[in-house]
Design a protein around this nucleic acid. Structure first.
Lengths: 200, 200
DNA sequence: TATAATAATGGACATGCTGTCCGGGATTTC
DNA sequence: GAAATCCCGGACAGCATGTCCATTATTATA
């Protein structure tokens, strides 16, 4: 049953998404105009607006597709993820590896080059992922789970950005090690004198 | 020797900065047009472009002023900052207090509402501050100082955003406590089973 | 294969913002 | 007071936006 979507509509959508991706790699998201996109995709002006309300709509739609793909991929990964039993950040290694492989795309999305919408969308996706992967062995004493999730996501994006901008030569595992050290143990692992966790 | 700058020019600049601030509180930065700004400031179109190349230029100029004010204020604070002797995050409390007092402004600048430029500018200012405040007792073993600075700034912005968006009722000191707990000791303070930091 | 739906096209159109230019008028400085 | 400096207002071309429509092409279906 090809009841889903007309081939033509599907083709147009795919062309637009592809054009958006290409142009984002070339000029960044903010600098793009709808005009640029439809030129690159070779699609009529009215056709574009028949599918999306603007470039932001197109972008969000793209992220929604990505989110679904990730959701499926996650189920697969989850099967062999028994190894991360006592490790609350068992997923980080895979994420840095992934970022290394698709460095170009990550770069365009992260660090201001992608614009506020993009970064926000990425934060949402990562938050979902972290929220599910983070084990329940976490006590809510120090900080609410919500807060911890945001903290981890923020640290991850910070690590990625620093990696790409300052030390692109480092291997994924090296950056991962720094990330884990800071997120798991905080500054205490880098401070000479440690403080007693007693009365203060 | 008279003034460096003509009074009229100074007045125009001040009016434009004021208008920008007002409108950012009302509509956010991204949604603003130069037209809006000059209307609000009651300044001629050509006059605007005689001073700034666009709204981004105006914004940056505003941040540069802010940066100078902070630099001076910092010297003052530095005098009585002897208390933060063994505390690598001695400055955080003051920052959360400040954020609480100017919550409206912080909200407009942070969390996507302010746009990429704004957030980037804020990151720069905060990075400068943290870089100077962070004591030299920090060992570069686990992660480069650069990385640690970015990590702290990111965590601070994350905390602020979470605070404003999810738990605006909390007091500055409460959020500060969570922030310090996570940044100083990481997740280990929230995890049930701790792992030995020996061979791994 | 014929036919009815559905989608894409290209062009026109009103609208709004941008950035630049100029001449007359106002304010400030010397 | 005179000269320098700044502001104003208007006009201008350029470009992007969103919307409309008549026409053409593709697709699904009987």
């Amino acid at each position: 049953m090809p009841r889903d979507i007309d081939r033509r509509a599907a083709r147009t959508r795919k062309a637009l998404h592809q054009a958006l991706l290409t142009l984002m790699l070339r000029k960044g998201y903010e600098a793009l105009s709808v005009q640029d996109i439809i030129d690159e995709a070779d699609v009529g002006r009215s056709t574009f607006y028949a599918h999306y309300t603007g470039k932001e709509d197109l972008l969000r739609s793209g992220f929604q597709m990505l989110r679904q793909e990730l959701k499926e991929a996650q189920s697969t990964v989850r099967a062999g993820a028994e190894a991360s039993h006592g490790d609350p950040l068992g997923f980080s290694t895979a994420m840095f590896d992934h970022a290394a492989r698709y460095a170009d795309h990550y770069r365009t999305m992260i660090g201001g080059r992608g614009g506020a919408v993009t970064e926000n969308e990425i934060r949402l996706i990562l938050s979902e992922m972290v929220r599910q992967e983070l084990p329940a062995t976490l006590h809510g004493d120090a900080a609410p789970r919500d807060f911890v999730v945001q903290f981890i996501v923020g640290a991850f994006l910070t690590a990625l950005n620093w990696w790409f901008e300052r030390k692109p030569k480092l291997s994924p595992s090296q950056v991962d090690a720094m990330f884990r050290s800071l997120v798991l143990h905080g500054l205490s692992s880098s401070i000479g004198g440690d403080r007693r966790p007693s009365a203060d």
